[in-house]
Every structure is written in C-alpha cells, then in structure tokens.
C-alpha cells in the first residue's frame, strides 16, 4: 500500500505547488504507516526528481514520452493509473490545479473513489475513512468532508502547506505507457505562454491593481513594485474587462483564486466578489485613497493615499531592502 503523489512541472522545473503536495503526501503516508511514491510526466530533469527525496519521497515513477509534452487529460490519466497499480496506491494526492482536478475527477470515476478538491488540512484518520477540510463558497467558508471509498483522492490547495526539507534522495524509475490516438485527443496545436514571468497561481507574492490605477499607462508603477518584490501581477475584473490587462490576470469569484503569502491591492475597492478570490492570502495590504473602502476591513496593513504617490515609495523601499 502506498500514497501516490502527482508531480507537475513548468519549463522543466517541478512546480512549487508540487513540492508542497509532496511534503503533504509524505506526512499522510507516515500517519497511515504506508509508503510514499510519486509520478511525474513530461520534460523534467531527472536530477530534480531525485531531489524529491528532500520532501520525503522514496521513489518517482517517471514517464518521459515525447507525445505528452503538453497536458492531455486522457494520456495523463493513463500514466497515473499505471503508477497507482505499480505502487499499489490507496491514496492519490495532487495539487488543486487545472491538471490536478482534471486527473482527479476522471480517476474518481474510474476507481469509484472519494475525491476532495481545494483541501486545506491534513486528513483526520479514523479507521478506513479520512476527513479533510476544504474551502467552499469561494473562500467564504470551509467544509469538513469524509472520504469513505476504498480509494481516496485529495487535491491540495496551493500555498496552504510548507515545503519540508530533510536529507534523502528518491529513486527514479521509468514508467512506460502505450498511448492510443484517442488518449491524445484534445492535445493542443499551439501553446502561447509568457515565459520567465512569475506564474500568478504559483506566486507567493502578488501585486494587484484595480480601477483606481486609472489606466494601463500607469501599470508600470505596479510592475516596478512587483519586480522589486519578485511578485506576480494581478488585477480586478473591471480592469480586465476594459482590456487594461489580460483576462488571465483577473482574480476573484469569476477569475482566478489565489492564496499568496502577500497580496497588495492598489486602487481596488474590495467588492465581495473580488475578496472571494484573494481572502485566504496570508497578509493583505490595501492602498486606497478612500478610507471607507471596504477592502480595509479585510486588510492587515493599509495605506490611505494615492497609488501614484504611494507605489513609487514602496518600490524604492523594496529596492533598498534588496541591496
């Protein structure tokens, strides 16, 4: 019996969220008294896979076939299903990402498993059942969910768990899988990706702007601060609706949900739909010229002032700190 972890990568590197999942999974395996293995797919440096030993992983099943460079759900599911068999896993743990949820939901059907997504706690173990806490109502509440089926799948919320560091190195074993044409249906013809930028969903610091930024021509104020803090940038919905920023930067109830360690909101009023996407951030900083802006109620630190004056001062201070 084992706990199996799905490792995701971007640009050949293991994602931070997957390191969190690996540490989480190692703890679950220890609590259950069973072994822990991982499965990785695609173009990843095998050395970085062995380094998963530092998160407590003993063996990594590695499928490195050229057809699955991009994410294709059916093909990935086939690889993970095979890794489940090889490792005799009873629990699968993955990140609460698009990839994690796509694989989790398909395997839940195939294995008649219990699946919980958006999980924010380690499981409470009671006999054969695990109970986990998951975020519901778009960050406004939590639910404790009991997983009763034989096979259990847990999708762990990003940035909710620390990455463990210990001594050790994982064995990397090749995992061969034969794909049919049907497995590869839905493969992308073309991928357009901004490289070298900090991914919003993976970022532990985010600087975000709203309508109070007054126009795309002022975004450099925000980008300068983001660069000095090594943060990703985000925006409110009206900002992307007006085309000031791309849609994939829009956070909130109808956008992306993030939970970085630091969320800096500049010129955002703090509407409930916006808060839904960011209110599980560990520290929230609000910059707004209106002292009555609702966002201040959800903030840890606040500056009542004009973004055009405040942001450059923050950038300067952050740069000074870096030196």
């Amino acid at each position: 019996m084992a706990v199996l972890i799905l490792i995701e990568c971007a640009d050949g590197q293991i994602k931070k969220s997957s390191l969190e999942v690996a540490s989480y999974g190692a703890q679950v395996a220890e609590a259950l008294g069973i072994s822990v293995a991982a499965v990785a797919i695609g173009d990843i440096n095998p050395d970085s896979l062995s380094a998963l030993g530092r998160q407590g992983i003993k063996v990594v099943y590695f499928n490195n076939e050229s057809q699955v460079k991009d994410f294709v759900a059916s093909a990935y599911v086939k690889v993970v299903a095979q890794a489940i068999q090889t490792s005799q896993a009873k629990v699968l743990i993955l990140a609460n990402s698009t990839i994690g949820a796509a694989i989790g939901s398909r395997l839940a059907v195939r294995l008649n498993a219990s699946l919980a997504t958006n999980v924010v706690s380690l499981p409470v173990i009671s006999g054969e059942t695990l109970t986990v806490r998951r975020g519901v109502f778009s960050g406004k509440a939590f639910a404790d969910v009991k997983l009763t089926a034989d096979f259990k799948i847990i999708a762990v919320k990003k940035n909710a768990f620390d990455i463990g560091e210990q001594e050790g190195s994982a064995a990397v074993e090749p995992l061969q899988v034969a794909f049919t044409e049907a497995d590869l249906a839905g493969a992308p013809q073309e991928t357009i990706r901004a490289t070298g930028k900090i991914l919003l969903t993976e970022a532990d610091k985010v600087v975000s702007g709203g309508r109070g930024m007054r126009g795309p021509e002022n975004w450099h104020l925000l980008e300068d601060l983001a660069e000095a803090l090594r943060a990703a940038t985000a925006c409110s919905k009206p900002v992307s609706d007006m085309g000031w920023r791309p849609h994939h930067e829009h956070v909130g109830q109808t956008g992306i949900t993030i939970s970085p360690n630091l969320y800096i909101a500049a010129g955002i009023s703090g509407a409930i739909q916006h808060l839904a996407g960011v209110n599980s951030s560990k520290v929230i900083v609000v910059i707004n010229k209106d002292p009555e802006a609702p966002f201040f109620k959800a903030a840890d630190y606040g500056i009542v002032g004009d973004v055009a004056e405040v942001l450059p001062k923050l950038t300067e201070a952050a740069k000074a700190l870096n030196q």
Binding site: L115, G305, A317
Partner: peptide, 27 residues
C-alpha cells in the same frame, strides 16, 4: 463519494494597521 459533515467560517482578521502615506516605505 463523499459525505459533508460540518461547515465553519474562516477566522476574522484582527484589524488593519494603518501606515502614514508620507512614510509609505515603513510598510
């Protein structure tokens, strides 16, 4: 495949600490 047992609300923030805009670097 799952049973919803109970719900809870997130902890409330303890309140905002305001910083003087003239001295924003303090943040």
């Amino acid at each position: 495949g799952t049973i919803y047992e109970r719900y809870s609300l997130p902890e409330k923030k303890s309140g905002v600490k305001l910083i003087d805009p003239a001295n924003a670097g303090e943040l």
